[in-house]
């Protein structure tokens, strides 16, 4: 069975996110000073072939831990659903 995973990878909260900081600064320039604390991460989608949703979830978790995220500097979460 095929599943689709939607993964979010974010810089750890304790770390400075220079991209997010630069974008936060530009919010004033576009007249939206009420927007603060922009943080920028990555959104990854992928397809997984697996027998069950639990298996698919395990594969995605392995991919995140081994390659997609570096847990020293990032956190991740994901959702999973059957491919239409």
């Amino acid at each position: 069975m095929k599943f689709i995973a939607e993964i979010n990878i974010m810089p750890q909260k304790a770390l400075l996110d220079p991209q997010g900081k630069a974008v936060t600064g530009s919010m004033k320039n576009i007249g939206l000073p009420g927007i603060t604390n922009v943080r920028i991460g990555k959104h990854i989608t992928l397809e997984v072939d697996a027998a069950t949703e639990a298996d698919a979830r395990q594969h995605v978790d392995d991919a995140c831990k081994k390659l997609l995220a570096n847990l020293i500097m990032e956190t991740y979460d994901f959702t999973i659903h059957p491919s239409a």
Binding site: L15, L16, P18, Q19, N70, I72, M73
Partner: peptide, 17 residues
């Protein structure tokens, strides 16, 4: 080497981007 865990820690984007 850091990504391989042969060395501890990580290299992040420069503070000033």
């Amino acid at each position: 080497l850091c990504e391989s865990h042969l060395l501890p820690g990580a290299l992040l984007h420069n503070a000033h981007q």
